[in-house]
Simulated assay, not measured.
Amino acid sequence: MNIAVHAERPCRPRVDSARLGRLAIASLHAELACTPKPGLVTPFDTGSHDDMDAGTFLRSLFALRHYFTAIAHAGADDAPFADLRMHGLAAEAAMLRATGGINTHRGAIFSLGLLVAASARYRQLHDHAGSAAQVCLAVPHWAADFASAPLDASSPGQRARVRHGVPGVREQAAAGYPVLRELAMPTLRHALGEGLTHDAALCQTLMQLVAQIDDLNLLHRGGADGLHWAQQQAHAFLASGGTFAPGWQARLRDVGKRFVARRLSPGGSADLLACSWFLLQQEGV
């Protein structure tokens, strides 16, 4: 009698969720440390903000350190969006406790959290890291659920989105973050490939984002006129060579002074910059 012997399928190794969580926090720290950034908080100045500084951001990052690991675990387990949202709401509460009620990372909790979950889920399914584009395109796995989740209509970003009729982060996420795939990542890869320092590559990417997206933070602070003005400033900086040109730091600091005079801060672009750095770094681990 022939007896068929079936080899047991090896268990797929667990995704290193803690490592993805650390990469997410490091990416937010890289955005904070990058300088000069027009209107944004850096270790050296508060930009257009009177209520926060680098210390506020560092307290927030410390409070969020477990969130990104937890949402990576959830992504690897293919958890429903309701579970991801629960982690996000808890993270937002922890952030507000740590900062005394100041919103430092609400946008990043959503977008970077989804990308961390998508990266972990991709790894669990395919046994290897996904490219930046593959991770972005994995986010719409949850789109049907997060599109119908309740919105905080009182938040500045939501008020600006409704008032000006522009898409927000949910629409970007549901489409697989085309702004990251088609603009931010190619800019960042090109800058690094041409030998720019990390700071210069990040600043070049930031200014491309400011030039080309409808940043809800800019709309909230300056309206349509403020957004258009900021985009023009970014376009002019890039047209003069951006961070590839000698003396770029001084020119960007001058741009920053004009942003501060108008109290403008491209916080949405900063969130996407941190997401871009995470997507690049997770490819290598």
Rank of each mutant, 00 (worst) to 15 (best):
I25W: 09
V41R: 07
D45V: 00
G39F: 11
L61S: 05
S48L: 07
L61M: 15
F68K: 01
D45T: 04
D50T: 12
T69G: 13
L28M: 15
L23N: 01
G21D: 08
G21R: 00
A76I: 06
E31I: 00
A30E: 12
G47C: 10
D53K: 02
A54V: 04
A76C: 09
L61W: 03
R14K: 10
A26D: 15
S60F: 05
L58D: 03
F62H: 11
A26S: 15
S27L: 04
L20E: 10
A18K: 08
T42I: 08
T56K: 05
A30V: 00
A72F: 08
H49V: 08
R65N: 09
P13S: 04
V15C: 12
P13D: 08
L20S: 09
V41E: 11
S48H: 07
A70W: 01
A72Y: 09
T35L: 04
F68T: 00
S48N: 06
A74C: 13
L28A: 00
S60M: 03
R14G: 14
C34T: 15
D45A: 13
T35I: 02
A72K: 05
I71E: 07
V15Q: 11
P13L: 03
T69Y: 00
A33P: 00
G55S: 12
I25N: 06
C34K: 01
A76K: 02
A76T: 03
A76N: 07
F57H: 13
R19T: 12
F57A: 00
E31H: 03
S60P: 08
G21I: 03
A74L: 15
H29T: 02
S17Q: 06
D50Q: 13
R65C: 10
I25A: 03
H49Y: 11
D51M: 03
K37N: 09
L28I: 02
A70Q: 14
C34S: 14
S48W: 05
A72R: 02
T35G: 08
G55R: 13
T35W: 14
D45H: 14
D51R: 11
A54C: 10
G47P: 12
G55V: 01
R22V: 06
H29W: 09
A76H: 09
A63F: 10
A76Q: 04
G39E: 09
D50E: 14
G47M: 09
S17L: 01
D50W: 02
M52L: 14
H66W: 04
L40W: 07
L58E: 15
L40Y: 07
R22W: 04
D50N: 03
A33C: 15
A26Q: 15
S27Q: 07
F62V: 07
M52N: 09
H49I: 09
H66T: 15
A70Y: 01
L61D: 05
L20M: 06
D51A: 13
R19P: 02
L58V: 13
T42V: 05
